[in-house]
Design a protein around this nucleic acid. Structure first.
Lengths: 197, 197
DNA sequence: CTTTTTACAATACGTTCGTATTGCCAAAGC
DNA sequence: GCTTTGGCAATACGAACGTATTGTAAAAAG
């Protein structure tokens, strides 16, 4: 066997370029040539690593999903053992598009949503992830309740929905510049202050 | 002047076809020929009523925005003078994609979101609408408070954000079939039960 | 040193795209 | 009734598209 290259690295580099374009101009701006230009490679290279455009598109979100999971596995939780409140805050802030990386992830997620309707593999990325997130939030609320930091009459499932909804609904206004990430963070902190006592 | 036709009706019919395609397959599926086929007209007809593709795309969301405003102006409020709670519930349920019409509107809104980043005219549709919605929700909470139906220590602005977030976050799971519209409605009713007493 | 295979670059091919062009029919104005 | 003009259909055109094909440099295997 001749010259060996890191296949994943090459595919990831191409996926990076695709995700940049999608976040800026949507899926309709994706062409093999445009991705090649953004990545600074030839279309021949892209053809060498992806059988066709659909496979390229599919790899790119799977790659983004992998990126997100990497961050959650490595960075969570930032400093030692967090309290339920710290963990809750970390998770909620993680969902808002507060910096370039998270902004791109958020926009790409939006761009791929309609594709999920007809594509079961894409759908699974969302369908599997959301209930896990709800469960995590509810568990953290429960832990805080058991520690006496949240009033016992609060329903953890309902609180999980409210918290997620509050964080999730910050996405569009932040991305569109109607609200700053700081304001979105403040909204979440404000509600956490009410929830914890 | 010769034969006169209803220009708006023609344009709306074409916009309808475009919106159907966008909701099903995203903006990347839009071509003048595809819209013509969906509408059952010739591409010549589309060219006659729209200078180019961009103008067609722009007209279509403006048309959808007009449709939504029509419904809010005419159907709100369903039966006579509603209580603040009825009005609140009506508004919140209006934002969830519970039937084909609202589902299409929701999906089209998502599809156009990335275009709003670079297009001020599109952005305005969102940027103008959201604060008005927040204000409406907060006002309704305030009215209910003054009537003694909501505890006076609730912050109307915070409650507006929670209510909107709760309703808004139902969109993706409902559209993707993870949750039924009935379950989404139940989640909203459950929280309204807690808020009102 | 030769062979084989990987990793591409370059180009070619057929299709689809947005849009320009052309032509025709019907109705209103004179 | 002739002219004009709006309302199209049909077609044409160049660019861009996804992808197939071809060629080549280089490195591992023998």
């Amino acid at each position: 066997m001749p010259r060996q290259v890191d296949h994943k690295a090459r595919r990831d580099q191409i996926a990076e370029a695709l995700l940049d374009i999608v976040a800026d101009h949507g899926l309709e701006a994706i062409s093999v040539r445009a991705v090649a230009a953004q990545a600074g490679v030839s279309t021949g290279r892209i053809q060498h690593y992806f059988a066709n455009k659909d496979e390229l598109l599919a790899y790119a979100i799977e790659y983004q999903d992998w990126l997100v999971q990497q961050r959650w596995n490595e960075q969570a939780w930032p400093e030692g053992e967090p309290t339920p409140r710290e963990a809750l805050r970390w998770v909620l802030l993680e969902t808002i598009p507060r910096d370039d990386r998270r902004r791109r992830e958020w926009l790409v997620g939006v761009a791929y949503l309609i594709r999920m309707l007809a594509n079961p593999k894409l759908r699974a990325l969302y369908v599997d992830g959301l209930p896990r997130l709800y469960r995590l939030l509810a568990d953290l609320v429960r832990m805080a309740q058991e520690a006496g930091d949240i009033a016992p009459d609060r329903d953890p499932e309902v609180e999980a929905e409210l918290l997620f909804g509050l964080a999730d609904s910050q996405g569009p206004p932040v991305v569109l510049g109607l609200r700053t990430p700081e304001q979105a963070t403040a909204a979440i902190d404000y509600y956490l202050d009410h929830l914890f006592r």
